[in-house]
């Protein structure tokens, strides 16, 4: 008897007959670890190319939290970029100051950049805004993710500018993106639904790119595990308060029952963007009275947040 038949219940890779690690429901095929890894790399390269996310001579700053998505992003880019002309990678880590959570992920980020030989910059909320996130959030825990999001975005832009980056890459995956669409709909926030995406505009903005936006959260976790980069890291303690948590579990239930749900949400968003083109709801840009950043009102989001925090 052929030894293979000793385990008749292990499905085989549709491309090479090795044991499968995944059944891709959309493509209707099984893949082994090596072919799955190659498939993820191919799809990310394709996203970057068709959306012109990276061009020759770019200096790409990767927002590296040390968590799974950004770790996968840095691994993938460092794997893919040698094929691009003169593109350089740097990693930027933001230390928000979250006790019992950030220490481990920062160490993981440091190990990874050292291993890959990638220039690494670290910026802390304390350096930039005068306080750690933990301090800022006392009594405001329910707003944790929105406050942190605004400050982290600013910190990343500062880090990217200091590093002379021409692009800022984040590890947002398909699940994140689909959740954001739904959350903006739930909140009745159409302008934000449309505004979020842009590859960025000219002038002071460093264009943001999301090379993993068509890769699911599970695929990212599998990619890491198959490439020995899986770490069981703590989850941010503030996510317990977040609406995103509920949306995440609901949406992944829908995706399981109705494969393609997340991609359909992304298509809906694109259609809305097209319909809105030109008639965009946002006011003309001014310079922020405090910091000079472009914004729609008198004060930018960061400065008005800092003001409301008594800074």
């Amino acid at each position: 008897m052929n030894p293979k038949h000793l385990q008749p219940d292990v499905p085989e890779c549709s491309l090479c007959a090795d044991p499968a690690v995944v059944y891709q429901r959309n493509a209707g095929r099984h893949l082994c670890g090596a072919h799955f890894t190659a498939d993820v790399e191919l799809r990310v390269a394709d996203t970057i190319r068709t959306r012109r996310m990276i061009i020759p001579q770019d200096r790409v700053a990767v927002a590296l939290s040390g968590g799974k998505d950004s770790t996968a992003l840095l691994l993938l880019l460092s794997q893919l970029l040698p094929a691009w002309q003169d593109v350089r990678l740097i990693a930027i880590t933001i230390d928000e100051g979250i006790i019992g959570y950030r220490e481990e992920t920062i160490q993981s980020a440091e190990r990874l950049t050292r291993h890959l030989g990638i220039e690494h910059h670290c910026i802390s909320f304390t350096d930039l805004f005068g306080d750690s996130l933990d301090t800022v959030l006392k009594g405001r825990e329910t707003q944790a993710c929105s406050i942190c999001g605004i400050l982290r975005k600013k910190a990343l832009v500062v880090g990217a500018q200091q590093a002379g980056a021409t692009k800022l890459a984040t590890g947002h995956n398909l699940d994140d993106e689909a959740q954001s669409v739904l959350m903006n709909v739930f909140r009745g926030d159409l302008p934000r639904l449309v505004r979020n995406s842009g590859a960025g505009s000219s002038g002071k903005f460093i264009p943001r790119i999301k090379p993993l936006s068509l890769i699911s959260e599970k695929e990212i976790a599998m990619y890491l595990m198959l490439n020995d980069a899986w770490n069981e890291l703590p989850e941010c303690p503030y996510t317990h308060h977040a609406l995103r948590r509920e949306v995440r579990s609901m949406l992944s239930g829908f995706e399981y029952m109705h494969p393609g749900t997340m991609l359909h949400l992304m298509e809906s968003k694109k259609k809305i963007e097209r319909y809105c083109a030109g008639s965009l709801i946002s006011a003309p840009l001014h310079a922020c009275r405090e910091c000079g950043d472009p914004c729609s009102g008198d004060l930018c989001q960061v400065c008005s947040l800092l003001r409301s925090l008594g800074k």
Binding site: D9, V10, P11, P19, A20, V21, V22, Y23, H30, G33, A63, S65, G66, G67, K68, D69, S70, G171, E217, K218, A221, M222, M225, L226, E232, L233, E235, C236, T239, R244, R245, R248
Partner: peptide, 25 residues
């Protein structure tokens, strides 16, 4: 310790580990 696809049939003497994918950047 080997990842298996969801349609793999598991048997009486198998030891199966289920790892939750935590959310986070």
């Amino acid at each position: 310790k080997k990842m298996i696809s969801e349609d793999t049939v598991i048997e009486a003497d198998d030891e199966i580990r289920i790892i939750r994918i935590a959310h986070g950047g």
